[in-house]
Design a protein around this nucleic acid. Sequence first.
RNA 1: GGCGAGAUGGCCGAGUGGCUAGGCAGAGCUCUGCAAAAGCUCGUACAGCGGUUCGAAUCCGCUUCUCGCCUCCA
Length: 504
Amino acid sequence: MLNLYNTLTRQKEVFEPIEPPFVGMYLCGPTVYGDAHLGHARAALTFDVLYRYLKYLGYKVRYVRNITDVGHLTDDGDQGEDKLQKFAKANKLEPMEVAQKYTDDYNTDISALNILRPTIEPRASGHIPEQIEMIEQILKNGFAYISNGSVYFDVVKYNEVFGYGELSGRNIEEIISGSRENLEGGSEKRHPADFALWKQADPSHLMKWNSPWSVGFPGWHIECSAMSTKYLGQKYDIHGGGLDLIFPHHEAEIAQSNACNHAPGFEHYGEAKYWVHNNMITLDGQKMGKSLGNAISMRQFYDGSHRLLEQAYKPITIRFFILQAHYRSTLDFSNTALQAAEKALKRIGEAMERLDAIQTENRLIAVNEDFEKNLATFRSDCEAQMDDDMNTARTIARIFEALPVINQLYADRSNGFAVSPTTFEAFRAAFHTIIEDVLGLKIEKVSNGDSDKLIDGLMQVITQIRLDARKDKNFKVSDFIRDELGKFSIKLKDTPQGTEWTKE
RNA sequence: GGCGAGAUGGCCGAGUGGCUAGGCAGAGCUCUGCAAAAGCUCGUACAGCGGUUCGAAUCCGCUUCUCGCCUCCA
């Protein structure tokens, strides 16, 4: 039984889809006006693992991850220039060119982490009619008002009927006091907590669309309500995003969806049944964020170009690094932590290769109870950890607990075998499934292999020569070969059954 | 100021009222021509002060500190 922490109720709940075996999941994707950074990666990755695990459990998942390419406003939602537009103007580009570039970059950089593409990836700009329709319905239901060509959500009215602030644990009075300083200056809004559903565009604005109210552009939160409603329905299972989106974005989303889809007096539906939020990545204890200027982009990780990076890191290392922490904990970035992850992951990869190489046929079974138990309980142990609010950290810990058994079985060159064949084969399958399918750790082949057949052949010749030299106790030659190869980052390991080589 | 999350051994990070994850680094041993890899063993940590309890890192209170949201943010 999968349990998920629901931000709405602030506790772990048993996951029960509204219409099993179908699951609808919506994740707030990126606002595409900059390079994808580690924070984007954590969100995409958290829900990638949830997506994978739901599929592993047999659910049929519709996974929607949007692209916000209409642009958010730069300041309090009342004034300011569209971020996309700002960039477009500065670079003499069509705003859509900017959006396209960053959308492509996002997908490239995120996919490198072996993150699966969502089943639907809708763009806000492609859903302007849906957003307009939704605004019209909200107006019709009496939860919005028109002011000077713009449309605002009436938070006070909504609060009276539905109650505002349930997700973030706020009340309207607090929000007023919090935004007191922004009150001044002839606002079109009736109440400072009100937010824009549609904004009239000033003449210099590049991205604008026709609407019943003005030539303008949609407000900040409406795209997610419109797109999730369109593809997942008025009520669906899971809505995800970063912790920092809880307020105001998700709070507003819930309000819009309720105000649109449910007439006053009806049950409070809350848009999604489970609201799941991942925590932030920190850098020296501070939140890493685009707007804070301390974000390291995924690209920079891959090529090691950021000044804080001591080396380049493979995408898979970053994936593993992030999964070593629970998604609801903050995760502090550091080179030493990343390097530790790199080494740890390598051990898993080597163990997997050994596991695949183990032969059980024609061997005498002499079961070692500890080994047998370790392998037999592997799958259910991992499932138990994943069921507990997606505890990838403990799942990974369980993987490491199986490693010594794999290594010892591999090293055993006797005719005996310490685990029953049924248990062993079941484990072999589970080990692959948990690591590759659920955690999405695509393990690269590390030893005795190269895409180049020529190199493979040459290495075979070289290692054979060295082996012969060692047999003759000509260690001068054998050590020379090992040392020289080491200069090309090729490492040799002498094992009972021959020499293994790896390219670092 | 309001709301919320934390403070875990050298570092990173899990965690349940008692059986005290895991990784990296470190130490010793085994294996080995030497390495490497692997295996075995080891550090006995939970911010501070009280309280509840037979027993708390885990529950409660207070203190100190850190961080997040309240403005765009994954």
